Amino acid sequence: MIDWDSGVCLGCGRTPEEIDGVPVPEVQPAPQPAAPPLPDNVAVQIGEGSE
């Protein structure tokens, strides 16, 4: 939170210009695990790759 009287952040002591110059890391979505293969008896009945 910026103290506009002093011009610095109350938490870190930086100015708004210093804070604006700090890059914000990009959040990467977590990778989704691959679906396990179908059991052989099911794959024979419906075919592999079916949803």
Rank of each mutant, 00 (worst) to 15 (best):
G7C: 08
P36I: 06
V8A: 08
L10K: 14
E17Q: 12
G21Y: 00
L38G: 09
L38A: 13
G47K: 01
P29S: 10
A35S: 12
Q32S: 10
Q32P: 00
L38W: 01
V8E: 05
T15W: 03
L10P: 00
M1P: 12
I46Q: 11
V27H: 04
D20A: 15
L10R: 15
A34Q: 12
V22H: 06
I19F: 00
C9T: 09
D20P: 00
E26G: 05
P16D: 06
I2P: 03
V42N: 02
S6Y: 01
G13M: 03
A34W: 00
P25A: 14
D3R: 07
L10I: 12
A30R: 09
G11F: 09
Q32L: 13
A34G: 08
A35R: 12
P37R: 05
Q32N: 05
V22C: 09
P37T: 08
E48R: 11
V8W: 00
I2M: 13
V42G: 02
D5Q: 11
C12A: 11
P39C: 03
V27M: 10
R14M: 12
V42F: 07
E48A: 15
E51I: 08
E17L: 04
C12L: 10
G49W: 01
P31K: 10
E26T: 13
P37N: 07
I19C: 13
Q45W: 02
V24A: 13
A43F: 00
V22Y: 06
A34M: 06
V22S: 03
R14Q: 14
I2C: 04
P31W: 01
L10S: 13
D3A: 11
A43L: 02
S50C: 05
G49H: 02
W4F: 15
Q32Y: 04
L10G: 14
E26I: 12
D3T: 09
G13A: 06
P37W: 02
P16N: 07
V8P: 00
A43M: 04
E18F: 08
A43I: 01
S50W: 00
T15G: 06
D20I: 05
S50L: 11
V42E: 12
L10M: 14
I19D: 09
G47F: 00
V44I: 08
P31Q: 10
W4C: 08
V27A: 12
D40L: 07
V42S: 02
P39N: 10
D40M: 04
P37L: 05
T15R: 08
V44A: 15
V22E: 15
C12N: 06
E48S: 14
P37D: 15
C9L: 05
L10E: 14
V24D: 08
Q45P: 00
D20W: 01
V24Q: 13
I2S: 04
G7I: 09
P37C: 05
D20F: 04
N41G: 04
W4D: 12
M1D: 15
P16K: 11
A30L: 13
E48M: 01
G11T: 09
C9V: 07
P37Q: 08
G47Y: 00
S6Q: 10
S6H: 05
E26V: 15
G47W: 00
P25V: 06
V44F: 06
A30D: 09
D3N: 15
L38F: 08
E48T: 13
P37K: 05
Q32M: 10
N41D: 15
Q28K: 14
P31H: 03
I2E: 08
E48Q: 13
V44R: 13
C9F: 03
I46C: 06
I2R: 09
P23D: 15
